[in-house]
Amino acid sequence: MGKECSICGKKRQVGNNVSHSNIKTKRTFGANLQRMRVQLPNGEVSREMVCTTCLRSGRVVKPAARSAE
């Protein structure tokens, strides 16, 4: 599974920390992932890691509220 959006596949990117003296060291930029209940196209409901871009754009279908049992 890992830290990857299950809708668009967005994952961490690699870049540089740049100091005042311009020394560069490697660093990672993580995707803004949230663990959400998602309704899949076949009607199943499961928990998925979804990036906030997919949430904002409406690519994620949220299921109806759980019934009180």
Results as ranks from 00 to 15, higher is better:
residue 1 M to N: 07
residue 2 G to S: 10
residue 2 G to I: 01
residue 2 G to L: 02
residue 4 E to T: 15
residue 5 C to N: 01
residue 5 C to D: 01
residue 6 S to E: 15
residue 6 S to M: 14
residue 7 I to S: 11
residue 7 I to P: 01
residue 7 I to R: 12
residue 7 I to K: 13
residue 8 C to P: 04
residue 8 C to V: 05
residue 9 G to N: 03
residue 9 G to F: 03
residue 10 K to D: 07
residue 10 K to F: 06
residue 10 K to I: 07
residue 13 Q to K: 12
residue 14 V to G: 04
residue 14 V to F: 09
residue 15 G to K: 09
residue 15 G to C: 10
residue 15 G to D: 12
residue 16 N to D: 11
residue 17 N to T: 13
residue 18 V to F: 01
residue 19 S to V: 01
residue 19 S to C: 01
residue 19 S to G: 14
residue 19 S to Q: 00
residue 19 S to R: 03
residue 20 H to N: 12
residue 20 H to A: 13
residue 21 S to Q: 11
residue 21 S to Y: 09
residue 22 N to M: 07
residue 22 N to A: 08
residue 22 N to K: 13
residue 22 N to L: 12
residue 24 K to F: 00
residue 24 K to G: 00
residue 25 T to W: 01
residue 25 T to H: 03
residue 26 K to N: 08
residue 26 K to R: 15
residue 28 T to H: 13
residue 28 T to C: 09
residue 28 T to F: 11
residue 29 F to I: 10
residue 30 G to C: 06
residue 32 N to I: 06
residue 33 L to E: 02
residue 33 L to G: 02
residue 33 L to S: 02
residue 34 Q to A: 12
residue 34 Q to F: 12
residue 34 Q to C: 06
residue 35 R to G: 01
residue 35 R to M: 12
residue 35 R to H: 12
residue 36 M to W: 07
residue 36 M to Y: 04
residue 36 M to T: 01
residue 38 V to R: 08
residue 38 V to L: 02
residue 39 Q to G: 01
residue 41 P to M: 07
residue 41 P to G: 09
residue 42 N to W: 04
residue 42 N to P: 05
residue 43 G to P: 08
residue 43 G to H: 05
residue 43 G to M: 07
residue 46 S to Q: 14
residue 47 R to H: 12
residue 47 R to M: 07
residue 48 E to K: 15
residue 49 M to E: 04
residue 49 M to H: 09
residue 50 V to R: 04
residue 50 V to C: 05
residue 50 V to M: 00
residue 51 C to L: 05
residue 52 T to A: 08
residue 53 T to K: 11
residue 54 C to V: 05
residue 54 C to K: 06
residue 54 C to L: 06
residue 55 L to E: 06
residue 56 R to T: 08
residue 57 S to E: 15
residue 57 S to P: 00
residue 58 G to N: 09
residue 58 G to W: 06
residue 58 G to F: 07
residue 58 G to S: 05
residue 59 R to P: 00
residue 60 V to N: 03
residue 61 V to E: 10
residue 61 V to C: 13
residue 61 V to R: 15
residue 62 K to E: 08
residue 62 K to S: 06
residue 62 K to P: 00
residue 63 P to S: 02
residue 64 A to S: 14
residue 64 A to T: 10
residue 64 A to K: 13
residue 65 A to Y: 04
residue 65 A to N: 06
residue 68 A to I: 09
residue 69 E to W: 01
residue 69 E to I: 04
